[in-house]
Simulated scan of single mutants.
Amino acid sequence: MTSHVFTDTVIMFQRCARHTLRSRDTLTISLLMPVLVMMLFTYVFGGAIDVGGPYLDYVVPGIMLLCTGFGSSITATSVSTDMTKGSIDRFRTLPMFRQAVLAGHVAEGVVRNLAAIGIAVAAALVLGYRPHADPAAWLSASAVIALFVVAISWIAVALGLLAKNPEAAGGLTYAIMFIPYISSAFVQTATMPAWLRGFAEYQPATPVVETVRGLLNSTGIGNNAALALSWCFGLTIVGFSCASVIFSRLSRR
């Protein structure tokens, strides 16, 4: 049974990956847009923002989260397309693990987002980003980012199932793309008004980005790691549970 589930998931992942590779415009935007945003903040706004050090070193962890936000829109839209264009109806006639199609979308989203993050980090290194992390810190930071990507991918799948059409699915993910901007990803939360700072400090993006920033820049992470992991696991459970329930209800129609 376990091998059957794994095989079906791999097949669905390959299917989703082929669809993404065929949509070259969408793929190019999802991979390059974070780099353009990073350059915008670094060279246009960075000189006016005081973070106590090089702004590029500060902003790179935030760009990693931004990659996930951009990628979530593609995942949600792809899931909604499957639901509205009849693909799921065809899968129901096959002897396969029913949830494999959702797991395939998540796996493809994780690989695509991690690729976008890798490209953004490579571009940052070219621009002068010089993290002080040792291999263990890099591995830990990568693990936190990967967990966050998995969590957001499951949320995106649930939103894609909930949407009435692919256009609406893309719209529903705007909140995910917007969240990193209201966090410590681009500016210190202490510079925000009190009413906004409360939200910025107690939402998932801030502890995740502070953990990654602390690991890569060797500035300390405090209790942010525990908060980041709690948010990642909590969002994964919520996203997976909601996606499973919605998919089961839609499958019974």
Rank of each mutant, 00 (worst) to 15 (best):
S183A: 00
I88H: 09
A122T: 03
V212G: 06
A185R: 02
T75K: 03
I88D: 13
F240Y: 11
L147H: 05
V10P: 04
A243I: 06
S248C: 09
V111M: 10
A225G: 11
R112L: 09
G62F: 14
R253Y: 08
A185Y: 14
D50L: 09
R252K: 10
L36A: 12
I176K: 03
R252N: 04
G46V: 05
A225M: 10
G222E: 10
T68N: 04
M38Q: 11
Q203R: 05
I145D: 03
M33A: 13
V187R: 00
G52P: 05
L161W: 13
L147T: 00
V150K: 00
N224I: 10
V126R: 04
A194M: 05
D50I: 08
A228K: 01
I176T: 05
A123P: 06
V245H: 10
R15P: 01
T211D: 13
D25K: 13
F199M: 04
G109N: 07
F247S: 01
V149Q: 04
A100N: 10
I49P: 04
K85S: 11
R18G: 03
A123Q: 07
A124H: 04
A136T: 10
I237P: 12
S251K: 03
G170L: 07
R253W: 10
T84E: 13
D89K: 02
R90C: 02
C16F: 13
A17V: 03
G46K: 02
I63D: 03
R92D: 14
V187S: 02
F240W: 13
A100G: 10
F148W: 08
A133H: 10
C16I: 05
M83E: 14
L102C: 08
V212N: 12
P34R: 13
A137L: 00
T206R: 13
I179R: 01
A205P: 06
S78W: 06
F233Q: 07
T81A: 09
L21C: 07
V126Y: 14
A226I: 13
I182K: 01
I145C: 02
R90V: 00
M96K: 09
F41R: 03
A100S: 15
T211R: 10
M39E: 09
P54D: 14
L127Y: 12
T81H: 14
K85F: 13
G71D: 06
G52F: 12
N165A: 05
